[in-house]
């Protein structure tokens, strides 16, 4: 990985802590965000100016080494079938979608989709692995591996600026039953601290929870580079973190429970522009 970017990231974390320390002399800060207007907004809004700047510029974005590595894998023939992603889909930014006419653009804005093979929701990570095993006859990537995070970032990035779409709330949408289960999960209290996602991300966006400024917990920036992780991470990694912080037993990467939640969260974020790969604290 690019060592220089990592040190910049560290320096910036230092800087933002110092900045927070200055603001902190007031003791506590009121909520400057109008969370009551019913509007939706991205965690970008509550990120610090420094973090936003890193996301704004691909040369500063610390996730790019992972994406660059994935772009090389994308072009490389792999597996028993000895074909590359590009052989079927064209270049990542080829809007005609290459030989198979299936472009990467738009995937990030519309996933999770319904997968007729499993009769379940499928996210970008799982789709990449389906193509690897089914078409390349190659080994699946591990869910939270550098390869998977980079490749998911590369695919999701092609939808940058596009608005998230979901009609999973329609009774005749094939995702509807999964969306409903995701909604139940979202409002169910859990863990020793007995909190639901909604307690933090629906009732208190913009409010401070000790040193953290709560956002609406939207998924439009994933995968995301977290300064705390010092690497990109998947949405399911964030789910696990938000579960463990309230002392709740997390579910597995790619589990049905988290797939339902991902499906529901995409719907909550309808209309938000895709930001992948975002940068967060």
């Amino acid at each position: 990985m690019n060592f220089k970017t990592i040190t910049t990231a560290v320096a910036l974390v230092g800087a933002s802590i110092a900045l927070a320390a200055c603001q902190g002399t007031a003791g506590y800060e009121p909520n400057p965000y109008d969370s009551m207007d019913g509007g939706i907004w991205s965690g970008y809004k509550t990120a610090s100016v420094e973090t936003q700047a890193m996301q704004n510029d691909d040369f500063e974005n610390p996730a790019m080494p992972w994406v660059d590595a994935a772009a090389e894998l994308y072009d490389k023939a792999d597996g028993e079938a000895n074909v590359s992603c590009a052989d079927c889909h064209g270049a990542p930014d080829d809007e005609t979608g290459g030989l198979k006419h299936i472009p990467m653009k738009g995937v990030g804005a519309s996933y999770p989709a319904f997968d007729p093979e499993t009769n379940k929701p499928i996210n970008i990570e799982m789709r990449i692995n389906q193509c690897r095993t089914k078409y390349q006859k190659a080994k699946a990537y591990k869910y939270e591996s550098d390869e998977m995070l980079g490749m998911t970032g590369l695919v999701a990035m092609q939808s940058r600026g596009m608005e998230r779409v979901s009609t999973a709330d329609f009774p005749d949408d094939k995702l509807n039953a999964f969306w409903k289960k995701g909604e139940e999960f979202y409002y169910q209290r859990r863990g020793q601290l007995d909190l639901a996602c909604s307690n933090c991300h629906e009732d208190n966006p913009g409010n401070m929870i000790r040193a953290e400024r709560l956002s609406q917990g939207q998924s439009n920036g994933f995968p995301t580079y977290r300064l705390k992780w010092q690497k990109p991470g998947s949405l399911h990694r964030r789910f696990r973190g938000c579960n463990k912080n309230i002392r709740a037993q997390p579910y597995g990467y790619g589990s049905d429970e988290y797939m339902n939640l991902e499906t529901y969260l995409a719907w909550r974020g309808r209309g938000l522009p895709i930001e992948a790969v975002s940068v967060r604290k």
């Binding site: 169910q188 209290r189 859990r190 863990g191 020793q192 601290l193 007995d194 909190l195 307690n199 933090c200 009732d203 208190n204 463990k244 002392r247 709740a248 037993q249």
Partner: peptide
Amino acid sequence: MMPSFYKTGQHRVLKKFIGK
């Protein structure tokens, strides 16, 4: 939103805190 500080039996408590 306030947790119950002297109670057990919440949903899906992390294993090491079950019963505590």
